[in-house]
Design a protein around this nucleic acid. Sequence first.
RNA 1: GCGAGAGUGGCGGAAUUGGCAGACGCACCAGACUUAGGAUCUGGCGGGGUAACCCAUGAGGGUUCGAGUCCCUCCUUUCGCACCA
Length: 860
Amino acid sequence: MAEDKELRYDPAAIEPKWQARWATDPKLYAAEPVSCGKPKYYVLEMLPYPSGQLHMGHVRNYAIGDALARHMWMRGYNVLHPMGWDAFGLPAENAALKNNTPPREWTLSNIAAMKRQMERLGLGYDWATELTTCLPDYYRWNQWFFLRMYEKGLAYRKKSKVNWCPECATVLANEQVVDGCCWRHEGTLVEQRDLVQWFFRITAYAQELLDGLDKLDGWPEKVRTMQRNWIGRSEGTEVDFFLDEEGDEETEAREQGIETREQGTDRQRIRVFTTRVDTIFGATSVQLAPEHALVASFTATSPELKAQVDELIEQQKKAREAGDLGAIEKHGVPTGRFAINPYNGRRVPIWVANYILADYGTGAIMSVPAHDERDFEFATKYGLPIAQVIQPEAPVLGVVLPFVSEDGVLVNSGEYDGLSCTEAQEQLQEIAERGAFGAGKVTFRLKDWGVSRQRYWGTPIPMIHCERDGLVQVPDNQLPVVLPAQIEITQQGGSPLGRVPEFVHTTCPRCGGPARRETDTMDTFVDSSWYFYRYTDARNANAPFDPKIAQYWFPIDQYIGGVEHAILHLIYSRFWTMVMRDLGLIVNDEPVRRLFAQGMVIKDGAKMSKSKGNVVSPDDMVARHGADAARMYSLFAAPPDRDLDWQEDGVAGVSRFLSRVWRLTVKYAPVARAGRGQQPTRQTGAPSGTSLRLLRKLHQTIAKITLDFEGRWHFNTCVAAIMELVNDIQAADAQLAAGEVGAPVVRELLRSLVLLLAPFAPYLAAELWEELGEAQGEYRSVLRAPWPVSDPELAKEDELEIPVQINGKLVTVVRVAADAGPKAIEAAALADGKVQSRTAGRTVVKVIVVPGKLVSLVVK
RNA sequence: GCGAGAGUGGCGGAAUUGGCAGACGCACCAGACUUAGGAUCUGGCGGGGUAACCCAUGAGGGUUCGAGUCCCUCCUUUCGCACCA
């Protein structure tokens, strides 16, 4: 048993050895200069938040990216494969509160720990470009960009209703509110507060963000759809109803065509937004959002109405906070006022309703019960009239209302009767524009990005409030505005920076007088919106990056991460790219050519999480089975885009497989070494049937895996294919031991096996590469050895098994030469015993031969 | 309610263009080697049947010589969106 030590696969011995060796070679995973002449490949995994511990989702993400990066290196590409830390954010402040550790210290030590974990996993990153977003040499560029955006009017301040998470004690962007709760604090209801906040004008790019999605064909359709929904473009018309302040006689007179006063003067208007202006003759009321400006003027004179409206506001607020705005029970109150439909002068009542949102469209709608389900429900409940103005093109008796289809023609709409809905929309819009009481209008659901945070651990917003000059930019040469290190983290509300006098008190760059610094910090999504550009030129002290270098590397060829960032991070990143392009820093319109959304890691039917108590620690896995096995299992257990069910026994299975590879390679390494320098073709040394069979399997395996790397990415089947190859070689153990397979063939088999394994199990591959005596000269590292090329001649079978069907049922299988023509295959099939006995006495009506695939007989 | 994905052995999954369903792995069973086995190797492993064969990819229908794959209806499930006017 003692001599078996050599034959035992011991990752605990191999992996640290290579880790140490790789650490002394910083060039190993470094990108080459722009001028290297090789095609570039930028592969990127989403940068982690430094929580202190990698989880299995990270391991899976990085295993995918690392396999791809290694493959591309072996294919001769200049690969950029960087890593960094999304290091600002609330957990650092919470930790400070809990353990009395400064956020910076806590964050940096977490980073060190996670970096160690990554190195232990053998991930091939270019650490020379490592980014840490909480350090001033990174976040100063956040400030620099903020100023550029401020100058272009893309960063601005406004007072608005904002989402406030009581747990975070800060505001949240719309994107960070999930089902009415904070994205970080499931179950914590977000409140609405009125605050002055900084915003980025992402809506200025709403249309381009939408249009660009069509061109992102390397993105999952799912992500594109989610972004489309989020942007929520809707095309319609804004129409002004006039507030009726006239007496009844006047109205009556006007309806008879008698002008009682000058047209268009100062009459108060209520602007509504509709996507169905063609139904406007069916409007039987106007509905205002409870917080519509006009409502306040109505309630000012009527305490009774005010009480009712307050009730509606309360209902809406509750529903909003509960996240089920859609389920709110419709309530409304009549205001006693009336509005005039500008198209027909009809007078309709004005109501206030809790299902109308103040922050979408104009906060007011025209209610057309006959052709809108919501209006129908409301009108039915309150007994408002329902007037049909659209009917199906082929009129059917008893149309069921509400009829919401746009396939119809107008009725009861005066001179517009008979027009199709689309024609009517065009004409009515034109009339409105001519009469100056409306216009075509595109509305987006997307809101500007609120970036102010009343927190400490983030990028300080580089603005100064001067008593004399008002808002003043921090000049570029005074950047970065550095976060003060000495700060007491408390749980009080308000910006923590406001409690640091040395930070707050400054002088105005313009007048030199006393001034106060802005004390809000930026949303951490700012950091991740452009970090991948910084990687290309990470140590540039004069600019965020060199445009020429960025132009070389961008767009990112492959971005890999969880689908949970489909909206937040990925829409901000696209916005930021467009802004940088318009600043002249880059030429690409989009940051990412291909996006890969990996599945989640599941255990016992639930997502791995601390609260579920089903977390598997990567360190444990590495300690027990080695990094190679842990990584390879995460690729083997499921295709990368699907959820992965973590099974401990499965890791052991992969580990067993790696042991098998180890024993096999070590056993025949002496033979392989003897075979160096000779070409193992069919001609050399007249390979036996076994040699040919194994070479064929090898070249089929190479072809399969190469193809998968080119797009399908089913690494689970790649690993399975390598397993098959190893099984086949092992099954020929007797022949190998007897020397029936020539040394050059043995060498090619083992050498290629190790190369195929290298992207998935780099430690084992490196060790065996050396064992095989291949670590010499140019190919000292398996990482720099060229990816094997499949020889189609060798991969080809010379005999095939062709299934034979009779009337669609499988009957038998016949062996024919691989190049047999249809005639020969048919003859072979008909000659088969089973076929003969089944066709005896019957007529073969039809024979279908698919060469290389099958024979199908139709028999009567 | 709308949209997208998924549904295949005991389990994870394979079948790339409509062409031998269940590759590969786990678990399990039997055997070999062994003082021992949670090591290793060999064989078996969808269901029914002694067998020839028959049945089987969520359910039902259809197209086709041939369907896990395409079409229709329905069920289950995951995710996203959801009074957005």
